[in-house]
Design a binder for these strands. Sequence first.
DNA 1: ATGGCCGTTTGAAACGGA
Length: 288
Amino acid sequence: MVRIATWNVNSIKQRMPRFLPWLDERQPDVVCVQETKLTDAAISELLDDELERRGYQAAYYGQAQWNGVALLSKVGLDDVVRGIPDAPGFPDPEARAISATCGGIRVHSLYVPNGRTVGSDHYDYKLAWLEALRRDIAKGPDDAVVCGDMNIAPADADVFDPHAYIGQTHVTPPERAALAELQKLGLHDVVRERWPTERVFTYWDYRAGMFHQDLGMRIDLVLASGNVAQRVQAAWIDRKARKGTGPSDHAPVIVDLDEARDGDLGPMVPPPSSPRGPRKTTTLPQAR
DNA sequence: ATGGCCGTTTGAAACGGA
């Protein structure tokens, strides 16, 4: 089993008392982090020893004060790419994307621009950035997970009250269309597919007891290519991490994947005394 | 109806967040 998690921590420096115990409790194999708000030198100083002790490799793409993304992995961290080719800046490039190959899967940790107000320069930047992301993901490879704070609620069911968001960013048709175009590449929204009718949010405003009234939005997503989506054993939102003292305003999303197979579901029960080592590959007839 | 919090830079209050 491989456990992948994504979490907008809203400052890794402030979140340390919550982040390390969460790592130890959930023990994710791969972690996508957003809103680290630290330079690479500063986050390295803060985290490297703690992560090495826990068996993680880490890659950072940060800047001072705002934004910042990271990838942690216990299952390999190869071919790290910081940023998205030809992505727009505001006006300069921002630290909003990092990707790497972890356990055979291309993993993306994303912090999509907020958009601020509909029709603003930042809103246009958000849409252009999403188009650059779509072009990049379209290049492949086939086994991919696109994780992070997408800053878009995919549907009205993903906000506590659609009327409360009329005219606001995160729900407008152009934003939802940009997300849909990304998903048309074959990406599955694995949490919504697992919880098709449930009220599942990942973000609650700090103010006015929004969390305690469960008045939130689902804007942190795990989008998995077909080959990866087929392996999903569990997909859920870790609301416990939003409770208690000093939480982020976002909760982590956690997805468990079965081991990679060769396209079939395999035996229901592992055969007794199966030898360890690389799984033998079997060529299956391809549908056309 | 409005804002209600938290983090950033700072050294009071503005800005960003969603």
